[in-house]
Design a protein around this nucleic acid. Sequence first.
DNA 1: ACTTTTAGACTGACCAGTCAGTTCAAAGAA
DNA 2: TTCTTTGAACTGACTGGTCAGTCTAAAAGT
Lengths: 202, 202
Amino acid sequence: MNSARREATRQKLYEAAVTLIAEQGFSSTTVDEIAERAGVAKGTVYYNFASKNDLFEELLRHGVGLLTASLREASEGAVASGGSNVDALDAMIRAGLEFIARYPSFTQLYVAELWRTNRAWQSTLMMVRQEAVAVVEKVLGAAVDAGELSDEIDVPLTASALFGMVLVAALDWQAFQPARSIDDVHAALSRLLQGRVGGPRV
Amino acid sequence: MNSARREATRQKLYEAAVTLIAEQGFSSTTVDEIAERAGVAKGTVYYNFASKNDLFEELLRHGVGLLTASLREASEGAVASGGSNVDALDAMIRAGLEFIARYPSFTQLYVAELWRTNRAWQSTLMMVRQEAVAVVEKVLGAAVDAGELSDEIDVPLTASALFGMVLVAALDWQAFQPARSIDDVHAALSRLLQGRVGGPRV
DNA sequence: ACTTTTAGACTGACCAGTCAGTTCAAAGAA
DNA sequence: TTCTTTGAACTGACTGGTCAGTCTAAAAGT
């Protein structure tokens, strides 16, 4: 069981697949392309994954797992160092931006597939999405309970909105003004979160 | 000459294509399927459009055209009836939600393709996106000039963020809690825009 | 008269998945 | 050390199916 070797191969396949699928979409990316980019024979793909679909599902699980961990860590870090729940939200925005900057392809691919219906990996995607969103909802709920945020807010909807705000702003940043610093982008989003856009002027 | 008959056929093809592509993606939707769903012979597709790609590009132009018109109308309506620029933004959020509720498939498909690189219709997509975003940016800019919004905000980035907020919240609404009323969703997003989430408590 | 649509057979390219055969690396044998 | 064995990992030509796009002659619409 040379599973270190195998693991390295799988990793190469993930990396090859993620960029190709982000660029072209799942269906128009061929297994031959993935194998070639990974520097591996086609058969190896099928030795390591049951099917093209399966490769993709495992890729999704793998990627969202990284995101969830990173969000959770950011939130816990903020709280541990004496921050409020709003600080935790802010830290999660930061972590989200960092994740997207680091794995732009994965993010593209995730967004492209998230709301598609009738696809084989639909249920996997929903599961994995729920895990990520739950992290945000939890902090949002805690902030409301602690009186930091208005108790009129709709937690799940606001979590979605925040998620979308970060997602779209970050993808646009990467696509259209990649030169800007992450601090810049973070500041703009923070401002929105903290109500300093449409709120009373300071 | 674009006869009325021809236009009706094209319309049927758009409608068939948009749902199929939203569900399955562009590449895994076949021209035969589109023709069948539209109740039209395959040859008719090629009589009306140069290729599958061309059909899709025209579909994108058509759809984003509707969105842009609707945003512009909402914004102008708000201003004409004596509203502030922030009211105009709010009206545009509403219009965005209505658009997504009415054309969920188009929205899915748009999001799925927006950040993809290396696709034939990439430039078309960028162009139409820019038109839509410009409408939001214009109002945002006017609001800053009028002193309604902090002049520290980054207009393009905030426009993206707002766009993303509406987009993701609406898609999640449609996908996971379709029973909720549009007013409900609108209220939650308004609150975020107006800074009543993270801002000072009332 | 002229435009548009029909029905569907056909072609050539493309591609997911298979499988018989080859290579690798580790563990033991000499 | 050097040789042999073993099973896991990998290879790539091949197969069977799918699909964009073409083409026809005839019908229907305006």
